Simulated assay, not measured.
Amino acid sequence: MAEGAREGGPPVRGRVPLRGVRAAEGVRAYGLIVAMWVRSTMAYRLSFAMTAFGNLAATAFDFVAILLMFSHVEALGGWSLPEVAFLYGTTSTAFGLADLVLGSVDRLGRRVRDGTLDVLLVRPVPVLAQVAADRFALRRLGRVVQGLLVLGYALATVEVQWTPARVAAVPLMVLCGGALFAAVFVAGAAFQFLAQDAAEVQNAFTYGGNTLLQYPPSIFAKDLVRGVTFVVPLAFVNWVPAMYVLGRQSPIGLPAWCALLPPFVAAAALAAAALAWRAGLRAYRSTGS
């Protein structure tokens, strides 16, 4: 299959203009496909409301488990309930946004196995946009809403001396955290070009990473904390900036200025994920080959 057909978009002289055109086409195609699925979903409004509420209720059980823990202890790893709720709210909202936008890519391995990915390759639209928008599930908004509710509770009850920098850090955490999770989604999808049945591996870093970050870093081994800081930098979703916001010390001795790094880490992760995606797509040789 020609590389131009895989990537989508008309040939444009020069790599930078070509990438810009492809990116614009990808965003437009993603929006059109998403709009189609949203119209399909809203044709059955009661069904959508029930599934969205079910999604919200199901994800809420994670926080109920935390509440049950705090019914027996006053602190978890030295962190109070509002502080843990702050961790939970930021990572759940960030993950919910990434899952809403890119959650469908975890089905890429199935498309590789059954050959339906070939249909996407011949369309003049970037493959990633098609895979990400396919079967867009608006019900996933329930996870975002639930995370925002817990975050609102945390902000109302946590004891913090708010400054303009700390206030600005909260929405920045959510946005950068969503970008980091998005990078993990795309990198995991790229891995499925090789493994073909690696959705569980991808979920270990996406859903598993979200669960990990809901709890204080002080309850985990330092080697694990270092791994999610320097190897798979999920700690920059909320652990690192949250320690600045809450006035806490890093368990692995990171300096305070590391709280400024999430935007740069997110940008680097997205760039690395894009490279991994292009490499995986070029390595794909169609089903049965």
Rank of each mutant, 00 (worst) to 15 (best):
A2Q: 10
G4R: 05
A5N: 14
G8M: 06
V12W: 01
R13S: 02
R13F: 00
V16F: 01
P17Q: 05
G20P: 00
G20V: 00
A23T: 00
G26Y: 02
V27T: 08
G31M: 11
G31P: 10
G31K: 06
L32I: 13
L32E: 15
V34H: 04
W37P: 04
T41W: 14
L46M: 15
S47W: 14
A49N: 04
T59N: 13
T59K: 10
F61L: 15
D62F: 14
A65W: 06
I66C: 06
L68F: 11
S71C: 10
S71H: 15
S71Q: 12
H72L: 03
V73W: 10
V73R: 09
E74Q: 11
E74M: 06
G78N: 11
W79T: 10
S80M: 09
E83Q: 12
V84N: 10
V84S: 09
A85Y: 03
L87Y: 09
L87R: 06
Y88C: 11
G89I: 05
G89E: 04
T90Q: 06
T93Q: 03
D99L: 13
L100M: 13
G103F: 06
S104I: 04
V105F: 10
L108E: 00
R111K: 13
V112K: 04
D114W: 06
T116K: 08
T116Y: 04
L120A: 05
V122N: 15
V122H: 15
R123Q: 09
P126M: 01
V127P: 02
V127C: 00
A129V: 00
Q130F: 08
V131R: 00
A132H: 02
D134T: 15
D134M: 14
A137P: 09
A137T: 10
R140P: 12
L141S: 07
R143T: 13
R143I: 15
R143E: 13
G147R: 07
L149C: 04
L149M: 05
G152K: 13
A154L: 06
L155F: 04
L155H: 04
E159S: 15
V167G: 02
P171C: 07
L175S: 12
A179R: 08
L180Y: 10
F185S: 11
V186T: 09
V186A: 09
F191K: 11
Q192L: 05
L194Q: 11
V201I: 11
N203C: 07
N203D: 13
A204R: 01
T206V: 12
Y207D: 09
G208V: 08
N210M: 15
T211K: 14
T211F: 14
L213I: 01
Q214C: 07
P216I: 03
P217H: 04
S218L: 03
F220K: 03
V225E: 02
G227V: 05
F230Y: 14
F230H: 12
P233G: 05
P233L: 04
L234S: 12
A235K: 02
A235L: 01
V237D: 09
G247V: 08
G247L: 07
S250L: 07
I252K: 08
L254E: 05
P255I: 06
A256E: 15
L261H: 05
F264I: 03
V265G: 02
A269L: 02
A269S: 12
A273I: 01
L275K: 08
W277P: 04
L281P: 04
R282N: 12
R282M: 11
Y284V: 09
S286T: 11
S286P: 01
G288N: 07
